[in-house]
């Protein structure tokens, strides 16, 4: 495993974070050292162990199907950096 500059650029793209090129090399180094450190997990034999997601031992609760929420457009868009006519607004997307 070695994260290089181009991996940093790729991951930054996936994460939608601008990392200026000048910082990519340094970040690659940091990520490498963190990844190198977590790789000690490889020492452990985890065969037959199911991956764990939640510590909560219960069934997923469910709600009754009823309209109990929504109809609060003012609250929904109150914090929007840009909105118009009740919509959120973003730079035009070309599909």
């Amino acid at each position: 495993m070695a994260v290089d500059k181009s991996t940093v650029a790729h991951i930054a793209k996936l994460a939608c974070i601008r990392i200026p090129e000048a910082q990519q090399e340094a970040l690659a180094g940091e990520l490498n050292s963190i990844l190198g450190w977590v790789e000690q997990l490889g020492e452990l034999d985890t065969q037959g162990i199911a991956p764990m997601t939640s510590v909560v031992e219960m069934r997923l609760p469910k709600r009754v199907d009823a309209v109990t929420d929504g109809d609060c457009r003012d609250k929904v868009i109150a914090n929007a950096p840009e909105s118009a006519h009740g919509f959120f607004s973003v730079p035009k997307v070309v599909e």
Partner: peptide
Amino acid sequence: TLDEMYEATRGEGFGAEVKRRVMIGTY
């Protein structure tokens, strides 16, 4: 563009440690 807006917002909006962890998590 939308992508530029996203990347600039998240690039400036998050500090170094948050970026580092989001990058590790994404990876």
